[in-house]
Amino acid sequence: MNTAQRPTPPNRSRSRNRRSRSPKYATGSTAVFDNLWRSVSEQLPYYRSYPRLVGETGGKDFVLAHASADVDALSTALLRGAFEYQGQKCSAASRAYVPASLWPHVKARLLDDLSALKMGDVRDLSNFIGAVIDKRAYERVNGYIDTARRSGEASIIAGGQCDARKGYFVSPTVIEVLDPRFVTMQEEIFGPVLSVYVYRDEEWPEILKLVDQTSPYGLTGAVFATDRAAITEASAALKFAAGNFYVNDKPTGAVVGQQPFGGARRSGTNDKAGSILNLLRWVSPRAFKETHVPATDYRYPYMKD
């Protein structure tokens, strides 16, 4: 916050104590940013000017495939986008929408690649995936997998194994859901779990609305299609669903300084880190006027008889 504070009010210490007892949240989560925003707003009378808050929180990032999509490119993007860094990226692909005409081929390719994927110590560069960050993350991800396993609206078609004997390992997991609003399609998991909803090809217009409305987040998203009209249609329909929108590529891997990053809705303030937009967020503009021939009479010409 680029603001100077006024002298500390008498009850400031009590406010600090009250905040210190607030729930502990995961760093970078929407809950953390909400808590920061509330804490700052409680102190507004003691700031010289209104604070400016910039934050990027989480996402429920999508991959949407059109019937014209390239199967191999789509399958590769799903695997890389969902399972690189164990899916512990705010931009990780977490929900996918695949047309029925492509799903058998995409599923076969995806399962084949996953069967060859190695998991283990990150010091062995032949391993594609490692352990999740800690026990808390492990238990949270395992909980979502158990929910899918017990549900009649979802089936685990790959992975689903969790092992905490030596490190917190969760195998890359693909869940096929019957309900497009199943919990794993809506909530941020932050782990190696990809949920897939298979739709009828003719449902494309409805699917565009579904993708936009399913999640409160708006960070990243990707559309796969070789039909340019479909790409244009998806770009327009999903303009608020992803601050970083990808065409025929996985929704991760923005390079700082080359691709400004950020999303809106519950994903943050979308101030695009790495761009001039973020810099302008922090400056305070001042308009300057100097009059070289100032008025010396209050009367305007039109006031004369």
Rank of each mutant, 00 (worst) to 15 (best):
Y50G: 12
A67Y: 14
V183I: 06
K289T: 04
A131R: 06
A225W: 11
Q259D: 09
L44V: 07
P285D: 08
S101N: 02
S171K: 11
V198T: 09
Y85W: 13
K135H: 10
M119P: 07
K239W: 02
P205Y: 02
D305R: 13
A26Y: 12
V40F: 03
Q5L: 14
S20H: 15
S267F: 05
V122M: 13
A93S: 10
A93P: 05
F261M: 02
A82H: 09
G59Y: 00
T76N: 11
P180W: 09
E153N: 06
D112H: 10
T147L: 11
G81D: 08
G58C: 09
V106K: 00
Q186K: 12
A31G: 01
D305C: 07
D72E: 05
I175T: 03
V183Y: 13
Q161L: 14
Q88P: 03
S15D: 12
E203R: 13
E188P: 03
Y97E: 01
P9Y: 04
N17Y: 08
D271T: 04
A230M: 01
T27I: 11
G58T: 01
L210Y: 00
N244Q: 00
Q5P: 14
R95Y: 01
A264D: 12
G143C: 04
V40K: 02
S20Q: 14
D121K: 03
A92N: 02
M1K: 13
R181I: 00
P180T: 01
Q43A: 15
K250T: 11
P251R: 00
A264Y: 12
A77I: 00
P99W: 03
N11Y: 15
S151F: 08
G221F: 04
T252R: 05
A264T: 08
A164R: 05
S49G: 13
G152Y: 06
D249W: 06
R52L: 12
